[in-house]
């Protein structure tokens, strides 16, 4: 049994999601190799080699892999799977984009957003916005999964795997990168953050969203998230969206401010360890899952909270 984990990285650095997918792969049993596909991604490959328990790192480097676009990624990965029983991706926008494409090429039914591994062929995943948990057994000869990183502990450091260089595909391909607008953040990344402060429609404008949430997030060393309503209204960028169709987070502390708690939102945060809700409607569904519900107007509650945290020496 051998499992290939496709690393999540931005060429410069390896994302923690990779460590979590490696630990999911270890639950399947057998040898675990990591593929780093990128451009000038040597540092990410080095970092992957240090993950505890990794047998070998495959490093494919070339211009075609610069942005990990689906077509070249498929061209690279589908043939590589010959040597593996399973290929695991993180359930990120990159993994979700590429994994089904690889699976279809292999004539395999892909399994999305896996949160539990019960053996080499049996997997648990949420369906219906996490309102039901589905356990499936795959009959396919190879397994192709996307893994929900928040559901697995990160594999440790201390490994010293060998790095094997393999060629990047050269195409031609029918899709080309044009440009990107990547939001540069001075705070922790949403999906890996230990604390998250999220705002909803109640905030009313982009200025208010940032004016209210940033000081609190700074104080807590938290990432900032948002409901769909806040993103649709332009208060926050798209990649702040937490939920069924956005990002899934499971921090130690999740603070929901002016968010009603629609099931689609809960799907992305209900596995947080401690949930705080600040909402002026005591009937808001978010209170049903909150450990600490505060029925209050955020306009007074958030400044008070900042002061109280200050006083408590946080």
């Amino acid at each position: 049994m051998a499992v290939l984990v496709v690393a999540e990285h931005d060429n410069a650095s390896l994302k923690d999601a990779t460590h979590k997918v490696v630990s999911a792969a270890q639950k399947m049993g057998g040898d675990v190799d990591v593929l780093v596909a990128g451009h000038n991604a040597g540092a990410a490959a080095q970092a992957a080699a240090k993950i505890a328990g990794v047998r070998k790192v495959l490093h494919a480097d070339g211009a075609s892999l610069d942005h990990q676009i689906a077509e070249p990624m498929q061209a690279l990965i589908a043939p590589l799977t010959a040597g593996y029983d399973a290929v695991l991706f993180a359930a990120t926008t990159t993994g979700k984009n590429v994994a089904p494409r690889v699976a279809a090429k292999l004539d395999v039914m892909q399994i999305s957003g896996v949160t539990g591994i019960e053996g080499a062929d049996t997997f648990v995943r949420p369906i219906y916005a996490g309102n039901a948990m589905l356990t499936v057994k795959s009959r396919d000869p190879k397994k192709v999964l996307t893994v929900q990183p928040t559901a697995f502990a990160a594999a440790g450091e201390g490994g010293s795997a060998s790095i094997e260089t393999i060629p990047a595909p050269d195409g031609p391909f029918k899709s080309a990168f044009e440009r990107e607008e990547i939001v540069k953040l001075d705070r922790p990344e949403l999906t890996g953050a230990k604390r998250v402060v999220s705002g909803g429609r109640a905030l009313g404008s982009a200025e208010e969203f940032h004016r209210v949430l940033e000081p609190l997030a700074d104080k807590l060393g938290a990432a900032i998230g948002a409901s769909r309503a806040a993103v649709d209204a332009g208060y926050a960028p798209n990649d702040y969206q937490v939920g069924q169709t956005g990002k899934v987070v499971a921090p130690e502390l999740y603070v929901a401010i002016g968010i009603s708690g629609a099931i689609q939102h809960l799907a992305g945060m209900k596995d947080s360890k401690v949930i705080v809700a600040i909402n002026k409607d005591e009937e808001a569904p978010i209170f049903q899952i909150a450990d600490f519900g505060l029925v209050a107007d955020y306009k007074t509650a958030v400044p008070e909270l900042l002061a109280a945290l200050e006083k408590a020496g946080v």
């Binding site: 395999v108 039914m109 589905l134 909150a290 600490f292 519900g293 505060l294 008070e304 109280a308």
Partner: peptide, 25 residues
Amino acid sequence: RLAVVKVAEPPKRQGGAKVKTVDEL
């Protein structure tokens, strides 16, 4: 290609507790 082993309720979260003040929070 996939056989459904089972479909189950997600683990229930114990929530619903309220605090009256920010200090209590």
